[in-house]
Design a protein around this nucleic acid. Sequence first.
RNA 1: UCCCCUGUAGCUCAGUCGGUAGAGCAAGCGGCUGUUAACCGCUGGGUCGUAGGUUCGAGUCCUACCGGGGGAGCCA
Length: 464
Amino acid sequence: MDKLSVLAARQPAAIGRRATLQGWIRTRRDSKGGFSFLELNDGSCLANIQVIADAKLANYESEVKHLSPGCSVTVRGDVKPSGGKEQATEVHAAEILVHGWADPESYPLQKKRHSLEKLREWAHLRPRTNTMGAVMRVRNRICRSIHDFFQEEGFLYVHTPIITASDCEGAGAMFRVTTLDPAAPARTPAGAVDFAQDFFGKPAYLTVSGQLEGEIYATALGKIYTFGPTFRAENSNTSRHLAEFWMVEPEAAFFDLEDDMALAERFLKRIVGDVLRDCPEDMQFFQERIDDTVLDALRSVAERDFQRLSYTEAIDILAASGEKFEFPVQWGADLQAEHERYLTEKKFNAPVILYDYPRAIKAFYMRLNDDRRTVRAMDVLVPRVGEIIGGSQREERLDILLERMHEQGLNPDDYWWYLDLRRYGTVPHAGFGLGLERMVQFVTGMANIRDVIPFPRTPGSAEF
RNA sequence: UCCCCUGUAGCUCAGUCGGUAGAGCAAGCGGCUGUUAACCGCUGGGUCGUAGGUUCGAGUCCUACCGGGGGAGCCA
């Protein structure tokens, strides 16, 4: 007998088939006529399949009547047209095998809405909810689009290291990786911790970005992308930050900033288009239950050109806006969240790409413009989430790169291999980083980043 | 890390001026000719986050700590 997913069994084409379905009970309703309706879910789609469990089943009184949310079952039966309005098909069970019970007195997920905050405390059970199921299916679709997009664009998937021995990536606080005994680490004669005796013979950390290593491969193989876990030890407590998250970082030789911005726009449009086409049921759920603006926001991303503005133009618009901002609008200062929000949510109500930022507020590797005041950086900002992509054209000129490193107090010796890329066959190149979870947030409308990753890691929280 | 809010039944919450704990949902039992957040009735369910303090008396007031949330900064 064929195994059918709930997704397949719900299609009218499945009518007439005798099949096996396996999954978890969501609810049981007992009918007046002496039989029961079971809602079975197996994660293949948001919806459940309705199972008709007749009283004639051998275990009807002993087991079926006691099924409750969370119980796992195998159902063998016939797919038939449903008499009810809510679904096209239903399964008339010939046999129901109970694999595991879920004591309703103690099982937390009863047939009732739970807050997302409470569900975080049950991260081992929350994938069984409609919301987390939908989030994970959309997250999966996004990940697939990421690979599809870059592969079709001719980018090579490169695995940059998770452990890095250079503390010079410059993108924020890092988690140390060590095998030294924290209670009694090896010491130098002077009393300092002796990392020469540590596993790697020097201090090591979890990566905060694969960019610098990505540049190594881009300047040999042309177009590459990385996609993997990334770690930031910042004490950030917001709905948009995680200590462990997934980042996509394309890097392309012979790309300038224009190419980079165009790539970012095509990339986001592709993801959004794929989700709208392939996840209509889940997206309808988000629209109805999570955020009733999310479908409009996605369609506008898919259909409309992104607004491109230089940093200087953005400052002018903000200064002329008449808005009362908590932080002053001033050329040379970084834009505050409230400024970005004004641009994306009020002024344009669409994604905005800002570029050519002041050199003093951006990283050393971003290419200096001829005005010598700005660098070829770009951020893609979207409504509600804010910065979703940060990127730049990289500085390929050795002398200027050295100048920028000195200006920011960095020791060129620590970057000898990065500088070699400019010493030997240097090329213009550019790239960006996309935070996967922020993209999932934007696409689903979920307000908190902790609800779009299976097991969120945040300061003080690494349960599960 | 800073500011603000919050912690009462399995879940969501109410609890007045400080006076001895309440509802809805869920659960258990019973009823109901195909139900769809099923419906109706009954029943059980509490160390009020933790530790101190004020008071004759604290869920309620004060202090500290812990957890959760929102905002800010950092960034993806």
